[in-house]
Design a protein around this nucleic acid. Structure first.
Lengths: 258, 258
DNA sequence: GAGTGGTCTAGACCACACG
DNA sequence: GTGTGGTCTAGACCACTCT
């Protein structure tokens, strides 16, 4: 752990991110011990040469990631020393795959344009009669089929997607270059039986169980940019979440590149 | 929405919680419109008679719950007007059930005490030879079986659980009275096939798919207090997550339709 | 009682969005 | 340029834990 000198290395941007990155590294490298206690906020503030508020903002990130606890009256405690990076992976299949060291792949099975039905208008917040772009994709990890993805795009987004080559792997990246950002998503996870298409594409039996993730993604203005249903073969994926009673305050952890 | 006077009503405790509760109500009741924009932070601060920092702390809660967006340079935007309350539901089956207006029930099928195996020692961070308490419970909603819960408790917690009546519904509540708090949890969600016990208790066929939630819960000192595997009948529950580049929240829903 | 995190204030400056 | 949220500071007091 560096005593000071967060100068220009480290996670670019704000001070508290640099402090958080440094603390994260110290924690995961075991500097404080497995269930050890962190220095007091005041001590950290002095050590890093920042105000206590900045230290608290950094600690809130680690808190939200489930790395440390917090309780009034006592030092913070290290909860875990190893942890998956962050949730931004959930916003992109490609990011998620790469973060696991797998090679993401995919094939566009179909892309059609048609008027949105009632449910789609509801999810994408569209006017009646608006046309949407509907895609069906098979997604692979290191060449092995793991997921079928059915996505509905509103016109502004669909127009861009329709121009992409059929074998393009990541969609969020080219869309970002067109100024379309994926920043917020609501996910719902449940179980569903494979239909004929699922079975054919994934090589499983019809009616066999699949893990389903429904997802609505919006941009920073709150405009829906995607409504998707992903169906995963059992055993290929598990969703993992950390939550706590108190994480609420000032939690942020933007992750730009990675 | 009240102009002022957060005096003593509302979510007890800190100022920012009261502000957050008031804003949450204003948002969900549609005061700002479906995709409307919130007043500026400064305006809210003046309106509530608090500092901008306090307003920001309140807004961070709403952000984490997926109620509003935030972006530098523009007003915050209302993302959704209907949303599940908060995280605490996920830490307790009973709370979750009640928050949906369902009546939680349950039956203790078995409770045994035996030495922890290697995996359990790992999850609960126990010394070799330590004994654990293992329970098998059937959980119901309004009398209908929905979930089988297999939980492993470390000695300190298990001793209390073992003293509880077999038909007690909530465990977190009596445990809290013994000074044992459930504050942090890691969840993993996937699909699994029903074994003979699952099938018998839930009334489904052996091998039929179940939604599985694995959960490790700790108290504020970081000490594991529970390691559990819950298996839900399909169609009875769906897990729902909101995540953004800024933070994330997880909640559990009853399953509607599609 | 001493130490610690939780809350709150009142200012300041900056980076970005939008007209 | 103006307004907005993002970051940061330097204080203050309180509630809680632990010894």
């Amino acid at each position: 752990m560096t005593d000071m000198a967060l100068d220009q290395d480290r996670a670019a941007g704000s001070l508290y991110r640099k402090v958080a990155a440094d603390l994260r590294e110290a924690i995961t490298s075991g500097s404080f011990g497995e269930a050890g206690r962190l220095p007091a906020e005041g001590a950290l503030a002095e050590q890093y040469g920042v105000s206590r508020g900045t230290v608290r903002q950094a600690l809130a990130m680690l808190r939200a990631d489930g790395l440390v606890t917090s309780r009034r009256g006592t030092r913070r405690v290290v909860l875990g020393t190893a942890r998956v990076q962050s949730f931004s992976e959930l916003l992109s299949f490609t990011h998620w795959a790469r973060s696991m060291g797998e090679e993401p792949g995919g094939r566009l099975e179909s892309l059609i344009r048609r008027p949105a039905d009632a449910a789609e208008r509801e999810h994408l917040r569209l006017e009646p009669g608006t046309e949407v772009y509907v895609t069906l994709r098979l997604r692979t990890l290191s060449g092995i089929p793991v997921m079928v993805e059915r996505t509905v795009y509103p016109p502004r987004v669909g127009e861009v997607v329709a121009e992409l080559p059929a074998d393009v792997v990541s969609h969020t990246e080219p869309l970002r270059e067109h100024g379309i950002l994926f920043t917020d998503a609501d996910h719902t996870i449940d179980v569903v039986a494979a239909n004929a298409d699922d079975a054919r594409l994934l090589g499983c039996r019809r009616g066999s169980p699949l893990l389903r993730e429904k997802r609505r993604t919006t941009d920073p203005t709150g405009t829906p940019v995607e409504w998707s249903q992903d169906r995963y073969l059992p055993g290929t994926v598990a969703f993992s979440i950390h939550n706590s009673l108190a994480s609420s305050a000032l939690s942020r952890h933007a992750r730009e590149s990675d």
